[in-house]
């Protein structure tokens, strides 16, 4: 155990933290009934991916740091996704007067 601790923070430790964060995000994405919380879960998953990219960039690709460039692009896409997602949410709320995900079943078979 102390052996493992002395190697921290290693690449594997960062990947494990990211894996935990991603799984929590997936669980929240499936189980949230509030539409805003679904968007928050998506942000958690994107952050987990970013942690992975940054860890690889620092430990495996230390001289070129392409992972950091990728992370910047992921942050950009996340910002666009959040803006459009919340706009869709507002328009849904105006039409259905609820944020319950179970009520948004218009497109379901």
């Amino acid at each position: 155990m102390s052996d493992f601790l002395s190697t921290l923070p290693s690449l594997q430790a960062y990947l494990l933290v990211a894996a935990i964060l991603f799984c929590i995000g997936v669980w929240g994405l499936i189980n949230s009934r509030n539409a805003v919380r679904v968007l928050m879960s998506i942000e958690l998953m994107l952050n987990a991916v970013n942690i992975n990219l940054m860890a690889f960039s620092s430990f495996v690709d230390g001289d070129l740091i392409r992972g950091q460039v990728f992370a910047v692009f992921v942050i950009t896409v996340a910002a666009a996704e959040a803006a459009v997602g919340l706009a869709i949410l507002l328009s849904l709320y105006r039409n259905r007067v609820t944020v319950d995900m179970e009520q948004f079943n218009l497109l379901r078979w």
Partner: peptide, 17 residues
């Protein structure tokens, strides 16, 4: 981006709905 923009946007959305 995240704390300054996305989180504030989410808070605004929560207040609106």
């Amino acid at each position: 981006v995240y704390v300054g923009a996305i989180n504030v946007l989410i808070l605004f959305a929560i207040m609106l709905v």
